[in-house]
Design a protein around this nucleic acid. Structure first.
Length: 1210
RNA sequence: GCUCGAGUGGUGGAAUUGGUAGACACGUUGGACUUAAAAUCCAAUGGACAUUAGUCCGUACGGGUUCAAGUCCCGUCUCGAGUACCA
């Protein structure tokens, strides 16, 4: 009986489906026993996108590996969860919808389930393709992200994120209600949250006075998903924004379209809150190092310091100040103006202010203090309203405005009855206790007044605050004091140790201070530069790193230590989006600063001991010794950094800081085919979440999938896309219906037009698989507590900074909310390598012709030549490359010329130029295993080459004139090259073809046999005969009866020489080790060796062959099931215990010792393993070949490693 | 540029803590069977010289450690991946 793989595989695939063999059981209810004793094991493949192109042999590589592992774990007694589903929202379906008008849901369904789409395209379907390979997926748990039942929970998580904020004190996400109650009791001063950086400080009183809308606006700045105007990567050709990880080299990952920066109001995810935890978590998971590195790189943590550089006032001769746009606009409320001013100042507290605030906040003095709180016409540093005590810290800036300060103190003291205390920076920083004492003493002697907090409704004040505020602004401007730069330019640096090497500062052209500090003299130049950089696209800026450009603002900053003036420049090498958008430039220590300084002839002071910086900057931290740097002199890098930070903090002009490159993730896409947001906008335009009971909010039908005429996303085309709700009843309605509904008790408004990005649906799917049909919760606590996390996750490395980072973020969020027990969801992750294609090429030569011109009669020559392209085989092409062709194959030329002459009767034809060739991709299915082209099939495939002339390997000519009988026998060999597997390269091999021809078991074995799982390797169908031959041999081993009948005998294996048991146990040991180490390629070799040996031993022992069937079953499950059944079993092999390895069968008494001389192996010698070192040495020395090798010499030394080797030196 | 990974026959790749380099396959060549092909089986197959024994060279390149190095150390080159004015 021969090995009929098609029949066998079909049979068992049906059996598994019918018997639901691989359905995983969730923990049973109490009283039921089955399943509970089994330990769990969760094996997961990354969510595939079901594309219409179907699978090629590269796709299932990871699935085969995970399937082997899952099957192995079942044999090992685990309850294995091994699900599969589809990430079925996505761009390709939508692009196809735009092109053909078909609903993406329809095409997606066909892509998964197979069939014919409306265009008449035949699609096999992912599911059928997967089933054919014999995967042990639990299909009862299938998920499709585009299924409303599935995206219901994506929407639900979105709402959870919206209703959460990140508390830095507890270092986790917390409920937004908790934040609201803090605001109502204490305001936001004591809140340590990850939030937007432009939040004004407010007291509880002010919070309560905010309108609902104002409160909502403020809360948005804290929520973990928030709506904000952000700079996004806009891709006009795709009509959508892209995430950073969707952009490669400045163009879109899909399609390579240009991307520009644009400001848009978008939903964002506050992933930055988790930056540190995402970094820390990497240490706890067993993931590939390159993947971890990529993530760490993406998060981009850098340790350093902030430093504050004061902006110096402009010399009067320079005109002082620039005109600023007045911030006062007609429609802003007065509270708004003052709050804005206050928050702007609070944003940049000086070190001394921050320190004193620590001493005053939270009623530490027994009384409530506020900082930067508007009083009458001014904003003092601190105020205790109850005691009418104002505390001011006089920094350097104060020196420039003594008069104004004196004046306002007078006004406040005399007219408003306030008391003043003034301290200097030094007092606060050096002896905070004394300062606090003085304040406390002062408070004791002052009488109590009423709390005037938020008392802005006083009519009298409102009248003139506006005017006075403007006046104050003007005064500041006229005095030559830099306006909002008064508090200086903040920079982030990882090299605070080089602060004495600063010779200039550079701001990003987009920096908000640029327009404020630029002197009138420099204004034209600066504005021209800013405009020029704004025009350059991100791509241009990135591509053009070499060109140095910038402009001087005319302004100077003050060095915090030397107090020297430092020129302030702008330049586009400083990025607005990183750090503070400004740098302190240390040209001697940073190459970019160095180049900039050289270009603009800025001095380059050297602060490195014994280092020559005349040619380039010196950035080696380890060899650094600082000099010319005051208190840092002589210090090595690390000590200098510490000291510099210490000194900066002492001055109140800086502190140690950790910076991250990671940005918040934009979560809106202007697409149709994605999860709709469960969000409507109320009458105030504020976003509101739908109640859980209304989920899922289903994707509406639209006429077309393009943006609307007004530029809205495709959902803007939906006829009904308004939310209308009264009490417990809500539904999606048309605009008209909404507007005509009764406003009384009505909730609702227009629904969000954006949809969620591709990664939304894949960020918690692994947990949803644990309880996929639960309609009440995302998963039950019983399910998550049983399955816990993914034990083995296999997928491609291309998801490193997308899915794999975002899903970790969501998992940590879910962990914070107590919904999942693990804050990392995948213990072990493997990136399978890519299987590349082996493209085939023929070469087309080009030739010129030259004949007497002006000969119209010869019109047809050109066409004649065009219709006869010459294709040469690869060896001719190689000759060509070596310039050897023309002389060897000149006869082709001669023949062609004679053809021309015959046809057109012309004498002076030039000839063929063989030098110019272009490679042409040939479909790999037209190539046999010896790389020879099927020429007739090629001509059918490419009709434009039906008249082509083929030059065969042996130089013979094959063309359309050659009769079939008289055809040259030579072969036409193509050249092959490894490329990515792709339709356009005609090198795609489909798994279905392989299954037809060799069977799924062969495919599975071969994919594993190709090489290590993680490595990328080329596909070559020819090699599959090796593993296919192995399966036939395996089959034969069980069919050694007459006429190939099934035959095993029941005699105990030990009756023979025991060799078969040795072979078996050697195999068990190796295969077990290999699977545990994910070294699947070597275990296939091991099986081959095993079968070769057992065949040679003529093994028929049932005991041995039963074990072998189990060993093979994870790899080649169909044949294993069939053999298992033939061995007399009625149950599937899939859960039979794995054979137990027993050492005793491998114990040997003898060893074939390699005998080497000076490290070179010369011969081997069989010796007993019982021998002592001395015995071995004696035996070896006595050997004839040893004497021969030594030729009479006496060895200097003899190394004997018992059980290993003997080495004779001398 | 920086970070990481990898360089072994004609090809895919093996080689455990340093201990017989090239397992297992593909391909190639020769042979058996067959009218023939396919399938199957047998033999050879890193290179060079010798064609019997054998000798020399060989794991990207150059050094080093060691009785012994594909494996460890130093330096160089090439390829691949990620990232890129990240201060």
């Amino acid at each position: 009986m021969s090995y009929d793989f098609n029949k066998i595989e079909d049979k068992w695939q049906k059996y598994w489906a019918e018997q639901k063999t691989f359905q995983a059981t969730n923990p049973p209810l109490e009283g039921e026993l089955e399943g509970i004793a089994l330990p769990k094991f969760y094996v997961l493949d990354m969510f595939p996108y079901p594309s219409g192109a179907g699978l090629h042999v590269g796709h299932p590589l990871g699935y085969i590996a995970s399937d082997i592992y899952a099957r192995y774990k079942r044999h090992k007694g685990f309850n294995v969860l091994h699900p599969m589903g589809y990430d079925s929202f996505g761009l390709p379906a939508e692009q196809y919808a735009i092109q053909t008008g078909q609903h993406p849901a329809d095409t997606t369904k066909v892509n998964i389930e197979g069939g014919v789409d409306k265009e008449g395209k035949k699609i096999k379907g992912y599911r059928k393709q997967l089933d054919r390979m014999g995967f042990s997926f639990d299909w009862s748990r299938e998920l499709r992200t585009s299924d409303p039942k599935c995206y219901k929970w994506t929407q639900w998580i979105f709402i959870q994120l919206f209703n959460s904020w990140y508390n830095k004190d507890s270092d986790k996400a917390e409920d937004i209600e908790a934040l609201i109650s803090i605001f109502s009791s204490d305001g936001n001063a004591g809140v340590n949250a990850v939030c937007d950086d432009d939040i004004p400080e407010f007291s509880a009183t002010i919070w309560k006075q905010f309108s609902n809308k104002e409160q909502q606006e403020i809360l948005l700045k804290y929520r973990l998903t928030y709506l904000a105007e952000t700079e996004v990567n806009w891709c006009p050709d795709l009509g959508t924004v892209l995430a950073n990880d969707e952009i490669v080299n400045g163009v879109s990952e899909r399609g390579g379209h240009p991307v520009t920066r644009k400001k848009m109001t978008q939903w964002s995810m506050r992933i930055t809150a988790y930056a540190q935890r995402l970094l820390d978590g990497l240490k706890t998971v067993d993931w590939p190092q390159p993947l971890k590195d990529t993530q760490a790189n993406w998060i981009g943590r850098s340790e350093g310091a902030t430093a504050e550089f004061k902006v110096l006032p402009l010399a009067p001769s320079e005109g002082g100040g620039t005109s600023r746009n007045s911030r006062i606009t007609g429609d802003s409320s007065i509270i708004g103006i003052l709050l804005e001013r206050a928050k702007e100042m609070r944003k940049k507290p000086t070190k001394a202010e921050a320190k004193l605030w620590e001493g005053l906040r939270d009623k530490k003095t027994g009384l409530k203090f506020r900082r930067q709180h508007p009083i009458y016409k001014y904003i003092p540093d601190f105020v205790c309203l109850e005691k009418r005590l104002i505390i001011e810290i006089d920094g350097e800036i104060h020196q420039y405005q003594l008069d104004e300060d004196a004046e306002r103190q007078l006004i406040l003291e005399e007219k408003k009855g306030y008391h003043f205390l003034r301290f200097t920076n030094e007092q606060v920083l050096n002896d905070i206790d004394a300062v606090i004492d003085e304040i406390s003493n002062k408070l004791k002697v002052l009488p109590s007044g009423e709390d005037l907090g938020g008392d802005f409704s006083n009519e009298e004040d409102i009248g003139d605050i506006d005017a006075v505020f403007v006046e104050t602004q003007r005064n500041i401007e006229n005095s030559g004091i830099p306006p909002s730069g008064a508090r200086g330019i903040s920079v982030f640096t990882t090299r605070p140790d080089t602060i004495f090497g600063v010779s200039f500062m550079v701001l990003a052209p987009e920096h908000e201070l640029v327009s404020q500090i630029t002197t009138p003299e420099q204004k034209t130049e600066v504005e021209a530069y800013v405009e020029a950089t704004a025009k350059r696209s991100e791509r241009e800026r990135m591509a053009d790193v070499k060109t140095i450009s910038g402009a001087f603002t005319g302004a100077y900053a003050e060095h915090p230590f030397t107090k020297e003036p430092i020129p302030i420049w702008i330049g586009d090498y400083v990025l607005a989006g990183y750090g503070t958008g400004a740098v302190m430039s240390v040209p001697c220590g940073d190459q970019r600063d160095y180049d900039f300084a050289k270009y603009f002839k800025i001095p380059i002071p050297n602060i490195f001991e014994g280092i020559d910086i005349s040619e380039e900057a010196f950035s080696d931290k380890d060899k650094t010794i600082i000099t010319n740097s005051d208190f840092l002199n002589g210090l090595p890098y690390k000590k200098a950094v510490k000291r510099a930070i210490f000194e900066l903090e002492k001055l109140g002009q800086g502190e140690g800081k950790i910076n991250y490159r990671l940005r918040d993730a934009v979560f809106s896409r202007q697409r149709y085919w994605g999860e709709p947001f469960p969000v409507y906008y109320d009458a105030d335009g504020m976003p509101q979440m739908l109640d859980k009971k209304f989920l899922p909010l289903e994707l509406p039908e639209v006429d077309k999938y393009l943006p609307t005429e007004t530029g809205d996303p495709p959902l803007g085309n939906a006829k009904a896309w308004y939310w209308l709700q009264y009490g417990d009843k809500g539904k999606v309605v048309t605009k008209e219906k909404f507007e005509s509904s009764s406003p009384s008790g009505r909730l609702g408004g227009d629904l969000e037009l954006n949809t969620m990005p591709g990664w939304a649906g894949s960020s918690q799917y692994f947990n949803r698989y644990m309880d996929p049909h639960n309609d009440d919760e995302i998963f039950s606590q019983e399910a998550i507590n049983y399955w816990q996390d993914v034990d083995l996750y296999i997928g491609g490395s291309e998801h490193a900074t997308g899915h794999l980072l975002y899903s970790r973020f969501w998992q940590k969020f879910m962990f914070d909310k107590g919904l999942v027990p693990k804050d990392e969801y995948a213990k072990k992750l493997i990136n399978q390598g890519m299987i590349t294609g082996t493209s085939a090429f023929v070469y087309r030569t080009f030739y010129f012709y030259g004949y007497a011109h002006d000969n119209n009669a010869k019109e047809g020559v050109l066409d004649f030549i065009r219709e006869r392209p010459i294709l040469i085989s690869t060896n001719h092409h190689d000759l060509l490359e070596n310039d050897e062709y023309v002389k060897d194959f000149n006869f082709i030329n001669e023949w062609f010329v004679s053809e021309l002459k015959r046809e057109f009767e012309i004498d002076d034809v030039g000839g063929i130029n063989f030098k110019k060739t272009t490679p042409l991709h040939v479909d790999v299915s037209l190539i046999n295993s010896s790389d020879e082209l099927d020429i007739e099939a090629f001509k059918n495939w490419r009709p434009e080459y039906k008249n082509a002339i083929f030059i065969l390997d042996n130089g013979e000519r094959y063309d359309s004139n050659t009769s079939l009988e008289g055809r040259p026998a030579g072969a036409f060999t193509v050249s092959r090259e490894v490329e990515k597997m792709s339709k356009s390269k005609y090198n795609v091999v489909s798994p279905d073809e392989i299954c037809d021809q060799y069977g799924a078991d062969s495919l599975r074995l071969y994919e594993m046999f190709l090489g290590p799982l993680e490595q990328s390797k080329p596909w070559n169908t020819a090699g599959i005969t090796g593993v296919h031959g192995f399966l036939k041999k395996l089959w034969k081993l069980y069919h050694s009866g007459s006429n190939g009948e099934f035959f095993v005998n029941d005699s105990p294996p030990s009756e023979g020489l025991g060799e078969d048991l040795r072979t078996l146990h050697k195999t068990i040991k190796k295969v077990e080790e290999d699977i545990e180490n994910f070294s699947f390629n070597t275990s296939v070799s091991t099986f081959m060796i095993c079968v070769n040996e057992l065949t040679a031993q003529k093994c028929h022992s049932r005991e041995i062959l039963e074990s072998l069937a189990i060993l093979v079953s994870p790899y080649a499950p169909h044949i294993a099931e069939e053999l298992w059944q033939k061995l007399g079993h009625n149950e599937s092999i899939s859960k039979v215990p794995f054979p137990k390895f027993e050492e005793k069968y491998l114990v040997e008494s003898e060893k074939e010792y390699p005998i080497s001389f000076n490290g070179k192996m010369r011969f081997t010698m069989k010796l007993s393993l019982d021998l002592s070192k001395e015995d071995i040495e004696a035996a070896v020395m006595a050997h004839e070949k040893t004497k021969q090798q030594l030729q009479g010499r006496t060895p200097k030394k003899v190394i004997v490693v018992p059980g290993k080797i003997v080495n004779i030196v001398g």
